[in-house]
Design a binder for these strands. Structure first.
Lengths: 320, 320
DNA sequence: CTGTTAGCGCCTTCAG
DNA sequence: CTGAAGGCGCTAACAG
């Protein structure tokens, strides 16, 4: 494995010159430049990243912390983020915290050890030991003052979705969603539902409890057991909406004739292309863009936004 | 940010002793050990990973290269791999090559630059510049001699699936699947289909062309346009199977009465928990385990298996 | 058992 | 414009 010294020797110059050519910094004569480039080719040399990062004090790596990557929403976000980061010259380290608090907490060690230059947080737990100075940005979660939070306009979108269900004739409108165990923008969905129901003068049919990824089907069953007469449901997520539709089908409830469903997220539709579940689609492209923009500002020590709200898009499907 | 020197000074010992305590290597007196531990606590010190990895010549990072992470199969694989790697003390760098050959090729640079200790390859393109000595392992893809390939028993499973469709009364059995642009174990699925059809004496109804992720729905439409009379379909992947079912529904074809469907992969079922599509489930846990085991052997320079075949599991659903 | 020393491979002043 | 030298923070070998 060739090092910079080998290149210098082969080119008949000093290592300083080689470094200058490689980083196009400082003054180098045309002749020296060519000799160096030839030697680099010759030896098939590429600079050792470990040494570079020790010297430069940054590694060009950003950590992404998600509860699980095997999920339509998180995997879509990861996909977008990886692309954006790549374009900004960063690599992405993926950590699936799998609801393990310990693994989530490792973000602090990883940052302290300089294994990453910054981190993006999409998690479920509370963290009180995150200092505002850490280069961290979150999606939906409030980790504290000084930690930027990027989110969709949860409240407005949900409010309008509930109104829409009412306009389409629903009177027994329900809400199903997981309750975050940490202060999160997602709470605004249930708040909007409740406000809208109050405004409409309807009785709530709300199932809002902590659940784990993978338990959506059971949760949907539970919903029908508790509120068998719902004629419209707002589901806080694609998977839940999917399970609700399946469960309805199993119970012989026709969608959308007897039961209308609107989902938040609207991501699964991007696989099967013909979106079937009417949904409020989060603009994951814009969300990811904002996340990366604010994170890079934070890493560079520039002023940043504490909160960015991205509009959603209403996608007409076949369940309303 | 405290360094090892600060700790040494605070503990009143030399940096060598600190290093020995931290790495529990060599002999250290109890007294010195305690003093160092106290100083570490005091200064909230953690060793700089960049310096460690320069010195140790490895970074504890493994790259995972997938076409896209927003996909039920790949995201499930990534999930399992991240867990296994974590348990082995490795972090996972995710690269979504998005069908971009350039991004896939970057594996070689990243390896040469020592940004990763090894790589896992799940990709679509041909690569002739991969040396057998590179610490790379693939899922399904043959990259050449010396590069371990982990895969399911594609041939056997597919053969049995086609036989099953025949047993259940299908006579016009079809195959739909993307054609890999690189020599891959996935080719054995279509080979098994063809052999089984020959054995059964049935005419083929096979759509086997290169497709990109995201185009599955269009591909399914194309299938029905070409073979509208199929009464049994083997789909090489969950998303395709899903699209086939939707398309059938749109055309008023009853599943499973008029059309039976079996999918390879069987991963989507793990979200909605009640698996609805009958499928040949790949044992992603075992696949991932084998991948990590062989990769670590390769990284450590130990002897390894060139090929590992993992059995699949038949999952009875509602489409047969 | 312990402190000191010599690099790991590179970047960056600093004289020349 | 260029080469030599110092140091990023840590580990491992060495002499005590």
């Amino acid at each position: 494995m060739a090092g910079i010294k080998d290149v210098a020797r082969a080119a008949g110059v000093g290592i300083g010159t080689v470094s200058r050519v490689l980083n196009s910094s400082g003054y180098v004569s045309e002749e020296a430049r060519h000799k160096v480039q030839a030697a680099v080719q010759e030896l098939n040399y590429s600079p050792n990243f470990r040494a570079q990062s020790l010297k430069r004090q940054h590694s060009g790596v950003v950590g992404l912390f998600v509860p699980t990557i095997h999920h339509p929403f998180f995997s879509k976000v990861a996909q977008e983020l990886e692309n954006m980061l790549d374009r900004s010259g960063y690599k992405m380290m993926l950590v699936c915290s799998q609801d393990s608090v310990e693994k989530e907490k490792s973000v602090i060690h990883l940052l302290a050890q300089n294994r990453m230059d910054g981190a993006i947080f999409i998690t479920h737990h509370q963290h009180n030991d995150i200092m505002p100075s850490y280069p961290i940005v979150t999606l939906d979660r409030h980790l504290g003052k000084g930690i930027p939070c990027i989110t969709s306009d949860n409240y407005e979108s949900t409010y309008r979705a509930v109104e829409l269900l009412a306009e389409r004739g629903c009177r027994r409108i329900g809400y199903i969603g997981g309750k975050p165990s940490v202060h999160s923008e997602v709470e605004k969905r249930v708040a909007a539902y409740r406000d809208a129901m109050k405004k409409l003068g309807f009785a709530e049919r709300c199932l809002y409890e902590e659940i784990r990824h993978g338990e959506e089907a059971v949760f949907a069953e539970k919903y029908f057991a508790r509120f068998p007469d719902a004629d419209g449901i707002f589901a806080s997520g694609d998977v839940l909406a999917h399970c609700i539709c399946r469960e309805a089908q199993g119970r012989g409830i026709a969608v959308p004739q007897q039961l209308k469903v609107i989902a938040y997220d609207g991501i699964i539709g991007t696989w099967i292309q013909r979106p079937s579940i009417t949904s409020i689609r989060q603009d994951i492209h814009k969300l990811s863009e904002a996340i990366v923009v604010e994170l890079l500002k934070k890493i560079r020590g520039e002023p940043f936004e504490e909160k960015v709200v991205v509009p959603t898009l209403f996608v007409e499907g076949e369940t309303v």
